[in-house]
Amino acid sequence: MHRGKGMKFVGDSRVPATRMPNIPKDYSEYPHKTEAFWPNFLLREWMVGAVFLIGYLCLTIAHPSPLERVADPNDSGYIPLPDWYFLFLYQLLKYEFAAGAYTVIGAVVMPGIAFGALLLAPWLDNGVERRPIRRPIASGLMMLGIISIIFLTWESVDQHDWEAAARQGAIVEDVEIDESSEGYEIYMSQQACIGCHGDQGEGGAAGPNIFENDYEAEDYAEIIRNGQGEMPGDQFEGSDEELEILAEWIANDGQDPE
C-alpha cells in the first residue's frame, strides 16, 4: 500500500477510509450464509448459555436436593447411585465383560475408545458438506454414541432398586442402644441379623431399621422365627430363651426390659 492511500488523516491518527465487513475471508468462499466467530457467534452462544445457567440456578433454589441420613462407611450393603449424567458408565460396569477382573476395560478402555472416536470425528470425516447425511462417518459416530448413552442410562434406571434406595437414605431418629445389655450381646452373635440390619440395627440396603416399628415382643419373635417379606425365617442361632430376650430388647428400643 502506498503511503497515505486509503487513509484519512485525523490529527496524528490514521483510520481506514472504508470499513471492511467483519467476515473471515475463508468463510466467504462458501455459498452459504456466513458469520464471524468473534464476536457475533461467540457472543450469541454466551447469551444462550447464561439464560440456561440462570434457569438451572432457579431450579436448584425452587427444588433443593433432598437430604439423606449421615453416610456410614461401614455400611457394606449401601447401594450407590451416581448422578444422572454418569448412569451410563455405572451401568456399563455391571456387565460381565466390563466388571470384576475387567474393570479397567469397562472404566477406562471402552469409554476412552468411544470418546476418542468422537474427538477424532472431524479428522476422520473432513469434508466440506454440512448436511448430516453427507457426513456418514461423523454422523454415524455421533448417533452411535447417543443411542449407547440413552440405552445404558435407561437400563441403569430400570434395574435400580428405588424402594431399597429410599429406605437406606431415609433419615431416622437415632436410638441409644445399651451395648452392655444381654439383648445386644445376643444380637451381635447373630451374623445373619448384622449382615442385613447393621451392627447397631440401623438398617441398610438389605434390611430396614429394626427399631422403626412399634411391634410387641411376641410379634418380633414371630418375625425372627418365621421371617417376613424378603426376610427369610429360621435364621436365628440360639435357644428359645435367647430369642425371647432379643425380641424384648428390640421392642424396648435397644434396652433390656426393667
Rank of each mutant, 00 (worst) to 15 (best):
E155C: 08
I146D: 03
D72C: 13
Y95G: 04
P132G: 06
H32L: 13
N226V: 01
E163Q: 10
V10K: 15
D75Y: 12
P66R: 10
Y95L: 06
I245Y: 04
G254E: 03
G198T: 14
I186A: 02
F41A: 15
E241Y: 01
C193I: 05
A71G: 10
G77Q: 07
P257R: 04
L124W: 00
L141Q: 01
E218W: 03
G169P: 07
G254W: 03
L87K: 01
K33G: 13
R167M: 12
I147Q: 04
E241D: 07
A164L: 08
I133T: 09
I210T: 02
D178R: 03
P24Q: 07
F115Y: 07
C193H: 03
S181M: 02
S76L: 14
P21N: 08
P64K: 07
P66L: 08
F115V: 12
F115S: 03
V104H: 05
P24V: 02
A114Q: 04
A138R: 11
D256C: 01
A138V: 05
W38H: 15
R69A: 13
V10T: 15
G169F: 07
K5Q: 15
I147L: 13
G254H: 01
V70S: 15
L59Q: 13
W46K: 06
A114F: 06
P257C: 00
E244L: 10
S189K: 13
V10P: 08
E222S: 09
H2K: 11
N40R: 12
Q191F: 12
G116L: 04
G127N: 02
R3L: 12
Y85A: 08
Q159T: 14
R131T: 07
W154A: 15
H32G: 12
E173P: 06
E202F: 11
G204I: 05
A192Y: 10
P39F: 09
L120D: 04
K8R: 15
P73K: 06
S65P: 08
L152P: 01
A71D: 15
A205I: 03
D199H: 09
L67K: 14
P132Y: 03
G207H: 02
L81H: 12
Y215F: 10
G145M: 08
H2A: 11
I150Y: 04
E244Q: 15
R134A: 12
E129I: 01
N40Q: 14
I194N: 05
A98C: 10
R19M: 10
N213Y: 07
E244F: 06
F151K: 01
F151L: 13
W162V: 09
G204N: 11
R14Q: 15
E244K: 12
I150P: 01
F88C: 03
G169H: 09
A221N: 02
L243V: 00
G183K: 06
T103N: 02
